[in-house]
Nucleic acid binder design. Structure first.
Lengths: 332, 332
DNA sequence: TAATTGAAGTTAAACGTTTAACGTAAATGT
DNA sequence: ACATTTACGTTAAACGTTTAACTTCAATTA
């Protein structure tokens, strides 16, 4: 089972009758060589099955050709999409992706990020990172890009316009003639509140105010649990907007379990436009937050930073409203 | 913006007035030291903010403390769950996870795996890998664990019992009195056929045969596209089983769009029990394939292999039927 | 023709760790 | 009292690359 020691650059050099420097430069395409030498090296490489040792290379260059991606929860399709996008552009640039799901949190995000930081050339960090870790992130000396949250301390960020997205939903509901509109929100951090602001502003234009219900985690289950409080407490809202599609699906499910028809009795909408949204009964109105493009943009931004090129500081993606049957004029 | 050179073990040694060997052994807890020395080292480490350089360490030890996880598509909740599970146990053992989504396939899985193989101590490889790459995987000299597919060439595998799972669904449908049962399958590789076998055997016990419809990729869209052919061609089946929950959701959605009621007109079931299954209207009957446990088990198995301990060759997880409203006695 | 440039390769030092082999002094056994 | 072990540290050689500085020789320029 024991495979023999992998060939080193020295083996190749010896077999080809040249110095290791020559082989190195050839491999990295740093210099031209005479056809004979080139052929000999190529033959030696093939013959020995030589592959670079990334660790050795990293040690001298100080680069790992790896980037870290810290996300909240891979199971949330929004984050899965981000991984997808980031993975695509990383592969295209010959970078590897070190993914860490910080929900699985044995010793604090900070410790995880610290461990991660030495193994990567740069870091893409998701929204819900505690403020005190941010100071540290700014000082690690490695490029960092945020996504989903506002930039701080000069750290660039990539995100979609949550205010705009919520404003669109709000307007959409108002145009449908809705009067009592509830928001099941997740506002733990300031930037998470922008959705509430957008919604509030849209409603204000029609002299309306959202009924806000706070949850502690944006999941299917949390949406489900919130439903009865939101739908049965006091006068029933005509529409309810979830912090994201998961929350919205939870709400929708429980609403139906309570015997309410959607959208006739209550309309429901969410954010992210996760793939299943379209497949619900009724299909869920959502706002496409361009998750995958967020992943791509974040990775692109990070790679330019790693290359020490200047990049634009912030990238703001335009969300798109996707109206579906879960919000529809009550009289239709 | 330029941060100063990170402290090396030599800096620490000098500051503490000891040799680098001492520091190294202290860091790695390989030896006991006198309280004074210990204190001096600790002070130096803290004072300088010393962290190990993983690349340098890797070079001499030959270990990277990183494992590679090659999956088909992060967006599929089944795979997301596997990442979750694998991530959890990796973190617990201080390993990092190099995730690669091989659907994003610029230059072939083989090339990706080759590149990956030098950066990791071991590899977890998902099901749909071409046979010719497997020979190569067996020879790279690094531990490899499969998941989802059968083992080959002595490579251990972790999977759930697809035959059993399908058999359970089949029996469930038969017990509900279903007669015409369709299977929308994805049978490109041999091991993917076990679900069909399980279903076939369960039906055979009632002298029934499944109607098989093949799709080319197990996705929401594929399920949706398959629906009309399966449901409208000839006599309509009373139940249709999708290769996985995504396919089942696609089928269900299109069936409803065609005006069919579920389960009254046609029952639907799938595999994986993805989180949203429970939230559908009606909730989708599925089989929990223990995705997350698969990820955990695969990682555990890999880590024992990396530690050169002997582990059991194959791990077979027991699926669990989760009956829900999408399959229900027509007369209920 | 002599001086200058350029191309093709080499030498050797570094990168930051680990670890086998080796001291040295104190503790233990006989 | 002497040999042997044990505990605590050190020395120095690796690990597999890259790269600045250098050589050599042929081609170009003045």
């Amino acid at each position: 089972m024991q495979t023999k020691r992998p060939a080193t650059i020295r083996d190749v050099a010896q077999a080809a009758g040249v110095s290791t420097a020559t082989v190195s430069k050839f491999i990295n395409r740093l210099q031209r060589f005479s056809p004979e030498v080139e052929a000999r090296i190529r033959a030696a490489v093939d013959g020995l099955g030589y592959r670079q040792n990334p660790a050795a290379r990293s040690m001298v260059t100080g680069q790992t050709r790896t980037v870290g991606l810290a996300i909240q929860d891979v199971r949330n399709p929004h984050f899965a999409n981000i991984v997808k996008g980031a993975n695509r552009v990383a592969l295209a640039h010959d970078y590897s992706l070190l993914v860490i799901d910080i929900e699985e949190n044995p010793s604090g995000e900070r410790a995880l990020l610290e461990a991660l930081s030495r193994r990567v050339d740069g870091l893409i960090v998701s929204s819900r990172i505690p403020e005190e870790s941010i100071d540290w992130l700014a000082e690690i000396g490695k490029p960092v890009v945020f996504f989903g949250r506002l930039s701080r301390l000069g750290i660039p960020c990539v995100r979609s316009d949550g205010y705009q997205a919520a404003y669109m939903i709000g307007r959409h509901l108002v145009e449908l003639g809705m009067q009592r509109i509830a928001y099941v929100g997740f506002t733990r951090a300031r930037w998470n509140a922008e959705r509430l602001h957008g919604l509030t502003d849209a409603l204000a234009e029609a002299n309306l105010t959202p009924i806000v219900h706070e949850i502690d985690t944006p999941s299917l289950e949390a949406g489900e649990r919130a439903a009865s409080a939101v739908l049965l407490g006091g006068k029933r809202p005509e529409a309810v907007v979830g912090y994201n599609d998961l929350v919205a699906l939870g709400l929708m499910h429980e609403a139906q379990a309570l015997g309410l028809r959607i959208p006739e009795d209550v309309a429901v909408a969410g954010f992210d436009d996760i793939p299943v949204a379209r497949y619900m009964q009724p299909p869920l109105t959502s706002v496409d937050m361009r998750s995958e493009q967020q992943g791509e943009a974040a990775m692109n931004r990070l790679l330019t930073a790693i290359a020490r090129e200047e990049g634009e500081s912030d990238v703001l993606l335009e969300p798109r409203l996707i109206p579906r049957a879960s919000t529809r004029r009550p009289l239709d």
